[in-house]
Amino acid sequence: MITIDRVSKARGRTQILSDITFEARPGRVTGFLGPNGAGKTSTLRILLGLDRAQSGTALVCGRPYRQLKRPLTTVGALLDGSGAHRARTARAHLRWMATSNGLPGSRVEEVLAAVGLTGEAGKRAGRFSLGMSRRLGLAAALLGDPEVLILDEPVNGLDPAGIRWMREFLRSSAEQGRTVLLSSHLMGELGETADDVIVIDKGRIVTQGSLADVTGGHRTLEDAFFALTATEAGAPW
């Protein structure tokens, strides 16, 4: 369970987030949708204890991330890149993470297989394509078998087959009872994946609800978004 309650954040005179409130529930894929610069990553960084809000609370399973005793076993996160040193192999990176978090070494081979990287495990991270780096980052997020997954633009850099694989993986994770929070600026992708949708624009929540509720009478999620955020200047995308 993820709970964001009245979170606000400013940098100087620029308001980044304004009174952000939403929940992501177990057993569901929650899509966090908005254009680049809307505030998605800022919200996730606050949720993961990488940044501080001026006001409000951001909780994972009822606690701030910084108070989790073994965070990797509660929440797995994928933000920018894989997090691996370019000179390390994929397997060495995951073994280091497992050891530092008190996790069994057997989990390394399990997560490599889960994300389809077993055959590439001996390759240095610096030689990975963007799509392979996303898979390695996801493998790291899965090491602790967490009940919550927080993923920022997870299909970035994936080819069509990789996107389909990611979609199926996210659905399977939710069906296993995990809470899955997925941020994206790709409306079509969320329309294929999410159970619930939160739409953010210019640091404010525009609307939220089930995918059916948000799309309403519109043919697609894209149509619904443009109807909600239309301005005289045109579409913000």
Rank of each mutant, 00 (worst) to 15 (best):
D213V: 12
A227H: 09
V206K: 02
I46K: 00
H185G: 15
L142D: 04
K202V: 05
R219M: 07
P104L: 06
P236R: 13
L228W: 04
R219Y: 05
A77K: 07
A212H: 06
L79E: 09
G83A: 03
L50K: 13
S18N: 09
G209K: 12
E175K: 15
V111R: 00
D51Q: 14
I20C: 04
R52N: 07
V199E: 02
R134D: 07
S42C: 10
T193W: 04
V199A: 04
G137V: 01
D80S: 15
L143H: 00
I150A: 07
R13H: 09
D5E: 14
V29G: 04
R95K: 06
S183W: 02
A92W: 13
A53D: 09
G137Y: 04
S184E: 05
G209M: 12
G105K: 08
G49S: 10
R204Q: 08
R11G: 10
S18Y: 13
L130R: 07
A230G: 08
D80E: 15
A139I: 05
A10T: 15
A98N: 00
N101A: 08
M132L: 10
G177C: 08
V214C: 05
K202M: 06
T215L: 01
R134M: 10
G62D: 14
F22D: 11
D201M: 05
S100C: 02
M132S: 09
T43I: 00
A92P: 03
G76V: 04
